[in-house]
Design a protein around this nucleic acid. Sequence first.
DNA 1: GTTGAAAATGAAAATCATTCTCTAATAGGG
DNA 2: CCCTATTAGAGAATGATTTTCATTTTCAAC
Lengths: 143, 143
Amino acid sequence: MSCQNAEQLARCLPAARRTRQRGAVLHVLVDCTEFVSAQQLHALITADGIAVGLTTVYRMLRELEVYDRVDVVRDEAGERLYRLRPFGGHRHYLVCRSCGRSRPVDAEVVEAWVDRVGETTGYAAVEHTVELTGICATCRPTS
Amino acid sequence: MSCQNAEQLARCLPAARRTRQRGAVLHVLVDCTEFVSAQQLHALITADGIAVGLTTVYRMLRELEVYDRVDVVRDEAGERLYRLRPFGGHRHYLVCRSCGRSRPVDAEVVEAWVDRVGETTGYAAVEHTVELTGICATCRPTS
DNA sequence: GTTGAAAATGAAAATCATTCTCTAATAGGG
DNA sequence: CCCTATTAGAGAATGATTTTCATTTTCAAC
Ligand SMILES: [Mn+2]
Ligand SMILES: [Mn+2]
Ligand SMILES: [Zn+2]
Ligand SMILES: [Zn+2]
């Protein structure tokens, strides 16, 4: 089910030791096809019958974020949602406000625009956040 | 100093009554040229010698948001920052991560891209968040 | 000018995701 | 096995925002 391998992922991180907990977080995260919050992820791991502290889940997600292995978005409540980054660069997503399912969108246009803004304005180290939400076909009430 | 008028703004909201507090929030907000948090705004009002509860400030900002009179961004800590919306439609901003100064950017390209994504994917009611941050010329260390 | 119902206020408490602290557990090299 | 630096995690702390609810205020009607 994994589009990435948990062991491989572990090797990208600087952790000195291999623990049951770190393994569990990565294994479950690899199987997540949608964005999940730290708490949801913790619940999923727990549901698998593995005991891992919430603190550890938060720690690992932050670590993955620092090492650019996850994309992060905020939901409407400001809660942070994580998803393993499928490929090299980051992606942007269109998330259904009803069911939460997301699909990556082609944002080349936007990336180019961001670069241009950086050049035009003289701002350095320009970073961007781009998030799209909508109601997917499945969730749309049948008219 | 106002690019908008507080009284005019008050009329856009559904409030049934005119109070000293509501007036104060709007007056101070009108003079803010940069994004401010609810707490900063509260401090500014207090500094003006007007007593207004923090609760009331939060309430008004939420109201202004519901009625599309403010643009809202989140800083890196996830805190919400508000700014009166200058014109009809919403704007996107390039915010300096060092000093917080922001400038609107021309995002026509992005708006068009968003529309296209909506059409292409079949998602309804597509909404977007686009935020840019960088380091402005003033803040950049002189090399 | 008075009155009163509804609206608005705000102090204090609650919420809740996230971070911090600090002790106990343990991985893993020697 | 031993030792110790690393990791785990329970519980407390944090802090922005929201909720509660008793009190105050507005303003239209009298
Ligand atoms: Mn991008
Ligand atoms: Mn836009
Ligand atoms: Zn959906
Ligand atoms: Zn700056």
